[in-house]
């Protein structure tokens, strides 16, 4: 993000790249391709270890599926508010964009709050980071994801700040689009985690 933000020339010159595509957007997609392997490693570690929970409660014992379903839903809907923010700035409606960005950030915070609550409950029920191979891989995987969401929230809030400052005119809508790509990616990772780490292992 830092790369492109805030040069703030009102009308960016059209700069011809060899493919006609924007450098930053290419970089973002390459980064997301890389992140696939990062989360792949975390999820694989979890899949390998999820059956090894001697020393602590098993997944079926600690999971609260209704609760996690609600927070998954919250994160999913934050993707909607994110595209609505992009759509707003593409229609040059800055106040609406800020509103949707704030909504996205708030939904993200709700998700994180839910994760903090979930972690606390787990620890109270005897599932700490070191209880078992399952617990370590669970906390590492979901923690990495939570850190990504937190980074995304900071990003969204700085976009709102920049916009209030007049540094995010409609010509720079690509910045919002890139933030959106990151945000949606974090969302799809959760779609996978929710199915592969919550529902499938404990389904009877």
């Amino acid at each position: 993000m830092a790369e492109r933000a805030a040069t703030a020339v009102p009308e960016p010159e059209v700069h011809a790249t060899s493919t006609g595509l924007s450098n930053v957007k290419l970089a973002m997609w390459a980064f997301l391709g890389s992140e696939c392997l990062l989360f792949g490693a975390l999820i694989s570690t979890f899949l390998l270890y999820q059956g090894r929970s001697e020393g602590g409660p098993t997944p079926s014992k600690v999971y609260d599926i209704p609760f996690t379903s609600v927070s998954s839903f919250v994160l999913l809907m934050s993707s909607l508010t994110m595209v609505l923010a992009l759509s707003a700035i593409q229609r040059r409606d800055e106040p609406k964009m800020r509103a949707w960005l704030m909504a996205t950030a708030l939904l993200g915070m709700t998700f994180i709050a839910g994760q903090v609550y979930e972690f606390t409950t787990f620890v109270n029920e005897g599932l700490s980071l070191t209880s078992s191979a399952f617990s370590s891989s669970f906390f590492l995987m979901t923690g990495f994801h939570g850190a990504h969401v937190t980074g995304g929230i900071l990003l969204l809030l700085s976009l709102v700040g920049m916009s209030l400052d007049g540094r995010l005119p409609p010509e720079r809508s690509e910045t919002v689009e890139l933030a959106g790509l990151y945000w949606h990616f974090v969302d799809i990772v959760w779609i996978v985690i929710f199915a592969a780490a919550y529902l499938i292992p404990t389904a009877t």
Partner: peptide
């Protein structure tokens, strides 16, 4: 253009 960070060009 060649080599500015924003990729979309920067007049200054």
């Amino acid at each position: 253009g060649h080599g500015n960070d924003s990729g979309s060009g920067d007049g200054s």
